[in-house]
């Protein structure tokens, strides 16, 4: 099944070369976790990253569904 991965700001550098914008899609097997989706991208999977699915912060073991959007960015004091 297909899910979308959006990496914001500095994490954009972890998207595959040639990716247009900040979002790519990946094929994963049904039942995959957020951790399994994000691991290939090489971003830190700890408290130094904020990770959300469809606009809600979730734990790494959350199961993703077809068409979900997984978003990650570096936890930093902002705006």
């Amino acid at each position: 099944m297909k899910v979308y991965v959006k990496l914001i700001a500095t994490y954009r550098e972890h998207l595959p070369p040639g990716t247009q914008g900040n979002t790519t899609s990946v094929e994963v097997r049904p039942g995959s976790s957020v951790e399994e989706v994000l691991t290939p991208f090489g971003i830190p999977l700890d408290a130094s990253s904020v990770i959300a699915v469809n606009g809600r912060t979730v734990p790494l073991d959350t199961t993703v569904s077809e068409g979900d959007k997984v978003v990650a960015f570096s936890a930093v004091a902002g705006g």
Binding site: K6, I8, A9, N22, V50, A52, G55, V71, F73, G78, G79
Partner: peptide, 11 residues
């Protein structure tokens, strides 16, 4: 801080 619109938009 200009990266933030993307974050607030996402939520």
């Amino acid at each position: 801080t200009a990266y933030v619109p993307q974050v607030t938009n996402e939520f």
